[in-house]
Amino acid sequence: MVLILGGRAQGKLSYAMETYCLKKEQVFDGENGPLDRLDGYSAIDRLDRLIGRLMQEGKEPEDVICTYLAEHPDAVLITDEIGCGVVPMDAFLRDWREKTGRVCCMLAKRADRVERVFAGIATTLKG
């Protein structure tokens, strides 16, 4: 599994598609894609949004992502680094930020490779 992270609008998805030869239809959109149909996709984009949506549905994001990874051990996961801002006033946004951080720590540990994209340029943090 590959984890790709970075700030918003840094070119993470373009980098991932080019580097890992992904077609648009192989990438699940974590912001808008149907939550019960992750299966079959080679990559998940906007993982942070997916985590927030799963939390809103009362689902455990770790469980959903681990189930997906069991079927797709070579997946590419793409996430925004949402933890690098001011602590939000809204309690749900704080929980979401905390959960995304913890889930991504777990994923970074499991990942074969972790890359951080800054202004379109990737730096390998692991692997």
Partner: peptide, 12 residues
Amino acid sequence: MFYLVSGGAASG
């Protein structure tokens, strides 16, 4: 030694 450790929320 003096070390500074930083990171975002829930970054370990």
